[in-house]
Design a protein around this nucleic acid. Sequence first.
DNA 1: AAGGAGGGTTTTTTT
DNA 2: AACCCTCCTT
Length: 685
Amino acid sequence: MLNLSGLNPPQREAVETLSGPMLVLAGAGTGKTRVITFRMANLIRHGVRPDRILSVTFTNKASKEMRERAMKLLNSRSKLKPMVSTFHAYCVKVLREDINALGYPKGFVIYDRGDQEAAARTALREIRVGDKAMKPGDLLNKISSWKMSAITENEASNHVTADFDFLASMAYRRYQKQLRASGAVDFDDLLVLTNRLFLEFPEIRQRHQSRFDHVQVDEYQDTNGVQFQLIEQLVSSHNNICVVGDDDQSIYGWRGAEVQHILNFGGHFPGTKTIRLESNYRCTDKIIDYANRLVKNNKDRHDKTLIAHKPGGAPVRILAYEDETQESENVVREIQYLITELGVRPRDVAILFRTNEQPRLFETEMRRLNVPYVLLGGQSFFDRKEIRDLLAYMKVLSSPRDEVSLLRIINTPSRGIGISTTEKLVQLAVLEGKSLWDVVPQGIAEGTVSKKAQAALSDFQNLLNRFRDEMADHPERLADTTKRLLQAINYDAEIDRQYKEGAQAEQRKQVLEDLVNSIGQYTEKTKKPSLEGFLETTALMDRGDQNDKDSELADNAVRLMTLHSAKGLEFPRVYLVGMEENLLPHKRSVESDLAKDIAEERRLAYVGVTRAMDYLTLTRAKTRMKWGKRRETVASRFLFEMQNEPGEKLVEEHFGDEDEEDDSDDPPVRQTLTSLFDADDNPPF
DNA sequence: AAGGAGGGTTTTTTT
DNA sequence: AACCCTCCTT
């Protein structure tokens, strides 16, 4: 029996609306995830077959949790489960079935961010803006925004407004050609190709459409153009579509998300029922006040005000430190105090920041004071050189046409196939219209490359062929085979040579062992394991997934993450650090001077503030090191907006030397902690 | 072909 | 301060 008595009236109405188009406009902390989980359970309770429901979430982690909770609510032991998935994971499923229709191989490789950058780098060779090379990252962003507006590489030149765009459109063409030749797709292609498949092949669309009677989409405010078209195509026969989102939390504009989709939902789907959730159960009244005042400064939004249901909260603190080192030292020391003296659980504390460069100092400090922490996102496990190398081997073994990966490993560790040899092979491949791998036998046979290189190439080819067969024939031994591959290429010796310091080398080797172990876990957990399957899982993994392997450890650790990855989460205590102009709002948005860019930064700050359940601390550094130079900073405009009515002065607590340098062994925060405690019978924590 | 020194460049956000 | 690229030496 599904018990709906814990839901408030609008929540309940949403859960009980089982058909037709519905828009749930849900502010931060109003229980929107709860609503769509309950609704899924309610659909099933009313006789909808579980596997006829598709529920789209933003991250893999969210999807896993949601599926489990829905089934638990029903106490269901049914083998049939609703499909809860991200857009990307859903698209991979579709493409694995039908991508040949578009002329791609079924065994296509999914390029991750690193592969994409390598491909972008190649595409950018000889393309310059003025005298400067275009940055691969900038190109990828541009390509992505074209793709999300369904603009192909052939059409891009019609959508050019600046020199940069024109050159980017040339690079886009090359980039796409390279991926196609490699039998590879990037993250955006997953969406774009699925959409094209549905548009161009009605019978394929119909087949996929007929699998689901109900579709739900969470975090709808971050839907981009291609995702919108996909949804429309999927539900056009029944219009049983329920979307949930908050326009004030739209923070992926740079990735093509358009708030217009949530603002115009009713226009697209006639007969839409709109439900507003404004009762916030997460944050204290003080925190809600800050959030409401902040977001009121944005113009183009559904005007709604969150209603707090947790009165009497602690005041929000705004703290200013002399520099970024003091900021991190004091925040971490305070957290340590909370954990050791007040018995706060580490997992109930989060430090949020705008850019991935910020957490470093905090990490150092956490390690020094032995505060357990997990860094979510940022320089991830899969970004490490060693992991990328090993994965490149696996990708080439899975799909030899994958040129980006092949180029990465052809001489790593160095085996005597140097730059000139590689270049000759690439030329040959271009000349013959073949893939790089297919031209290797010619390199060995003919006199195109040196004698020494011929032998090295032959060895390399044999090695790969041997392991390819091995992995294909015995997928259950994938972990073991990978381990032997590492031995065969003598990767340990390469690490020893690169890192003279023993401890560092050991750490790098350990990372590789972790990957081998995770392959082992994969083969055990999966019914029909395969090299391809492992690579696919890895490619689709999001930042939240990565820490699953050591989740017991991560389970009780302070969380460090960017504002973007904090979306959808909540914590009893939040430290939002680096509240400075040019950091939040970020420099690029300040410089762009477009109101919409600043508005998105404001929403980002809003997301940060509304993550906090009970205690919120905003900090900034009055000076900050940048490019090796110390520079004065300016307090973020959002601090003013949050704290006051327009025009009033910012009230913040200042810490740091000023004129008292005598007591360097008595850290300022101690004084602060006690003074705040004594001064106030409503203690700040 | 490999490895090291020196010089120049760089810091948004991620499924 | 950290990273990448280029050039120079072996």
